[in-house]
Amino acid sequence: MDLGKFEADNTVSCRLSSPIPDVCKTEDCCLGIDEAGRGPVLGPMVYGICFCPVSKKEDLKDLKVADSKTLTEEQRESLFVKLDEAKSFVGWALQVLSPNTISTSMLQRTKYNLNALSHDAAIGLVQYALDSGVQLKEVFVDTVGPAEKYQEKLSHRFPGVEVTVRPKADSLFPIVSAASICAKVARDHAVKGWKFLEDLGQVNTDYGSGYPNDPKTKSWLLKYLDPVFGYPQFVRFSWSTAQSLLDSNAVAVHWDDDEEDGEKAAACQNNASMLSYFSRNTHTHTHTHTHTQANGHHSSPREPHRFFTERRLHSVSSL
């Protein structure tokens, strides 16, 4: 599997795909959707689709694809090679969501949660298959969330396609197993070949499983934790494990749109304006600014004009 396109810029989301088999453009097709790397605190999450003509379902079964989680890495690799060899009737496409995409989406001002991110990735891939001329009739989806709602959403989005959303679909439908293998192989390759864009020198790649509860993963996070910048972009900052390690091992950072900080800032401003209202008279007596002294008269300090506040320009008389 060639991840070159993703590796060229691993900070963004990237689409990888096989050529579309000609037969998929003329015959009714089934399509499976699955994901890999949803839980880990490290590396990308990969969404995968795999599709073939409905008439070729048995041929796919003969390839002995199975749920990627029940397979070893070597088995997945060899099954991916088999899927590639079956390219006359099997096609696939992947959406690689970089850890940076996941972090910045989940932490953005208008929160974009992992479920919405996943659904949109899946929808984007199905749309890609349709746009490429694949004659879609059946779609099978593996889900971790509530199946009914998701099925409703997809059916509504793709009228004319029969959508089946099912927990453990990756072990029930071979086309979903095939999708899970493509996604998992891509995820493994992406993690293994991760090019750190930070200048970290030789990085210890003993990440453990990447799951937050793995002690190896946790000690890796601590090893590469920087007190100011946090982690390399290989880490999903939005994971609670990543956050709590930062809370206790890194310096605090305050954001304008953070609710707590925002309230504090607002409270501060209110206090300041109240105080300045009461202290306006005493202010000139106790703290004489250098320029008022030079002018030789005590004018009451005025609020700076909007021109200055908008530009955050302040008069500075001391450091």
Binding site: D226, V228, P232, V251, H254
Partner: peptide, 17 residues
């Protein structure tokens, strides 16, 4: 943002890179 830190930082290693 406001960073509660006053001192050197690995700017080129983590940020500009």
């Amino acid at each position: 943002c406001e960073i509660e830190h006053d001192g050197p930082a690995e700017v080129s290693r983590y940020f500009t890179a």
